[in-house]
Structure formats: C-alpha cells, structure tokens
Design a protein around this nucleic acid. Structure first.
Lengths: 122, 122
DNA sequence: CGGGATCCAGTAGGATACTG
DNA sequence: CAGTATCCTACTGGATCCCG
C-alpha cells in the first residue's frame, strides 16, 4: 500500500471504463446534478434538464434507481406524485465528477481547437 | 466567484457529459493508462490492452491524436515503426480520472449488488 | 509492422402515440 | 402526472481481408 492510486492493473482500467461508460451517456450526469441539491419530481427534472424526452428520462432514472444511485418515492395521490432523490452513493459520485468537471471546463476549448486544426490539416 | 465548483449550469453539465462520453468508450482510458508511463508502439499497445482489435485500436488512437491527447511519431524504416505518446493534455486527464478510478474501486461492487437485488425484486 | 476498406450486429438515442 | 409501447435512425464495436 505505497502507491496512492496505481491505475495500472487491467482490472482497474476495466472498472474505470465501466464507470465512465455507465455515467458517460447523454443524460445521466445532468440528471444527477439536477438532483444534487434537492429531490425533484419527474416533470420537474424534465424541465430542469431540458431537451430530454420522457422516454429517455424514464430510462435514465430507472437505471439510476437500479444502480442504487437514486430513490423513487411514490405518493398514491391523484394525480400521482413520484419523487426522485439521490442516495448517498449517488451523491458520492458527484465528488470525483466535480474534479472531472473542472478539467472539462479547463480543457474542452483546447480539445475543440485541436480537432479543428487536425481536420484542417487534411 | 464564491462557490468553488458549482456544477449547476446546464452548460457545465453538457461539458461534463461530453468529456465523460468522450473518454467513456470501451478502450480510450485503457489506452491512455497504457501510455501513461512510457511511449509505446502499435502492437505493443495492442498486447498491453488485450482483447482490442486492430481496427478499434486504430480508431481509438486516431481520435486521441485528433483531440491532442496523443502524439504519433512515424519512423520511416522497414518495417515501419510508429510510436505513440501521451501529450501534456493527455496526462492531465489521467489526474481527475484517477479520482474516479478510486470511486470505481470503492463502489463498483456495491453497484453490482444493487443491480442484482433490483433485478431479483421483480 | 501498422494500418485502410468493407461489412455486419447490437445498442443508444429519439419521436410519437397511448395509458392508469 | 408519470409513465409504457412502438418504431426508427445513428453510432459503437468488431471481424475479415487487403495494402505499403
């Protein structure tokens, strides 16, 4: 237990890739961030995220619930109310993602520039 | 400029999602980690990663090169030698990813358990 | 050795309409 | 309000063969 975080073993790489591809889809992180401060209801999330269809929001929330990142609470009223909230696991994810967000903000423009230049050179 | 890292604005969410989905594919992180310590040649990377086809390695490396994360150096010898190395940008990415790797190691088993339980309950 | 070209299957994302 | 059910398109991952 000397090296802080090897990130060398193939098993680790696959774990990282698995997590990255899990949360790297189009909507998951936006939903997680939307739920970070307070629980919200379905159409509330839908408005906050913007541009997401009911279908994709349903899928995203169901997958998050399945992974134990989000809880789903149904109030048997009419009209029905369903409230979604982050679990501790879901909140804990937002910490390392915050780091990545900083990196994204700092370097995304550079990446886009690199792409433009690469494409122009051919 | 009070809050350290808001991660609230929709624009930020999209940046994060863009980066996550960019590096969240099946092979990118494994290639980056393989190149982290020293430059390597094509088939060397292929052996290190394991299970990747030439096609996918070619695509992955080309995309990394386009984004300015990897340099491609051709030695005009016979047989040709092509060496790939991480750029500073590529190396800087491995830092926040290291954080996410720790999270992955710590919580991946829990997530898998949650999935099993969720699937069993229906 | 280091790819390019082609073809193919599976899945992610999305539009729309309908339901309890 | 909060979904479910269809249907469709585009992209990802991969296998195979060919080339300098």
């Amino acid at each position: 237990m000397d090296v802080p975080t090897p990130l060398d073993a193939p098993a680790d790489c696959r774990s990282v890739s698995e997590v990255l591809s899990r949360v790297g889809d189009k909507w998951t992180m936006q939903v997680v961030v939307t739920l970070r401060d307070q629980p919200r209801r379905f159409n509330d999330i839908k408005r906050q995220v913007g541009g997401i269809s009911q279908q994709m929001l349903t899928r995203t929330l169901k997958t998050l619930e399945r992974d134990g990142m989000v809880t789903r609470t149904v109030c048997a009223t009419t009209p029905p109310q369903v409230e979604y909230a982050l679990t501790a696991l879901g909140r804990s994810l937002s910490e390392p993602v915050r780091e990545l967000a900083q990196w994204a903000r700092a370097h995304l423009a550079t990446i886009h520039d690199n792409r433009s230049q690469y494409d122009a050179d051919r």
